[in-house]
Design a protein around this nucleic acid. Sequence first.
DNA 1: CGATTCGGAATGAACGTTCATTCCGGCTAT
DNA 2: ATAGCCGGAATGAACGTTCATTCCGAATCG
Lengths: 193, 193
Amino acid sequence: MELTANKRDNILDASLILFAERGFDATTVPMIAEKAEVGAGTIYRYFDSKDALVNVLFQEYVKRFAAYMIKDYPDSSANPRSQFQHIFYGMIRFAKEHTNALYFIDVNCNARFLDDKSREVFQEMMAFLYSFVDHGKRQNIIRSLPSEALIAVVFGAFTRIYGLIRKGVIQETRELLADIEQSCWDAVRIHSD
Amino acid sequence: MELTANKRDNILDASLILFAERGFDATTVPMIAEKAEVGAGTIYRYFDSKDALVNVLFQEYVKRFAAYMIKDYPDSSANPRSQFQHIFYGMIRFAKEHTNALYFIDVNCNARFLDDKSREVFQEMMAFLYSFVDHGKRQNIIRSLPSEALIAVVFGAFTRIYGLIRKGVIQETRELLADIEQSCWDAVRIHSD
DNA sequence: CGATTCGGAATGAACGTTCATTCCGGCTAT
DNA sequence: ATAGCCGGAATGAACGTTCATTCCGAATCG
């Protein structure tokens, strides 16, 4: 039982690293098998196909990502500034622990191989972000731009930064992250000056 | 001669669309041939390999992108605010005319299939942006974050926005673009309030 | 308690398919 | 007429997937 669960996890872990490093199409099943230290056929004991595998992986991590942001989220009586901070630090915690997963989600969230379930799980996560943005816009604290655009700005900036951290170009320090958070907030908030 | 140049261009145009839509690995040479309305073998009359083709395409468009930003760039006596605006509107002009190319460059600027020349051309473009950021930091107008991070924030936000425009999720209006420009500037500048 | 049987998990060689690339017969333009 | 460009069938490598076989621990029997 232990070993069984372990192999499945080994396959998922190996896939995530390879998909993040090389992309889905450039990763072959034998590559995954080698990294997971299982036979190529074993992968098909746990997953119907390479496509099914990537979808399981995607859904798994999108759900976790959403959980990081939603956990202890200040309710709608809280001010947008602290809600933003909560979401952003949730993203940071996820990114710290699952840097490859963040990159994998980011690159593949519109990929052609995603099935309906994967798209649905992703949209659920986005719906949460829309509700936050709309709340802030109603209070005249967040810029009145399309919600998609505001989310794109923050998400784009954030994933890029973690791309640089992933590659070792910049160091992930508390100060840097605090500054980036402020920078992203300044991008979406309405300014008085 | 006319026809010859035309075929080469057809191949490049078809490749750009397909690489942007499906990605490099999921685009086959016969697909390119069909879209370009040439035989598969003809592609190899103009390019050594699929890899060589994608590198030519990448370098071509990175150079054009850089040209859009650098043309009429205000010299270092100008203030960073107007320099930023110039760069940003250069990016917008490029993105408007070559939306697929922007997406293609963005997604593939770290791809494993890029050769030394492609990386060099890309780095040249980045060097220009570094010099702008450093200039602004020295004048205490731009946040003292790593230049890579500041560029990533703006670039990440910008390419995401054009991703949405490309997909038709949001409309590309003069007002939206002006707001996004302001939003990105607010992300990198030092605030007085 | 050791020997034997058993069943499902694991394997990797082999399969059909599809890829990037080559090659050559025919077509075009002069 | 013919030189050279062109197209698409041919090719071999590599892909995702399958399946006959091996392996291994638990259950059963003597």
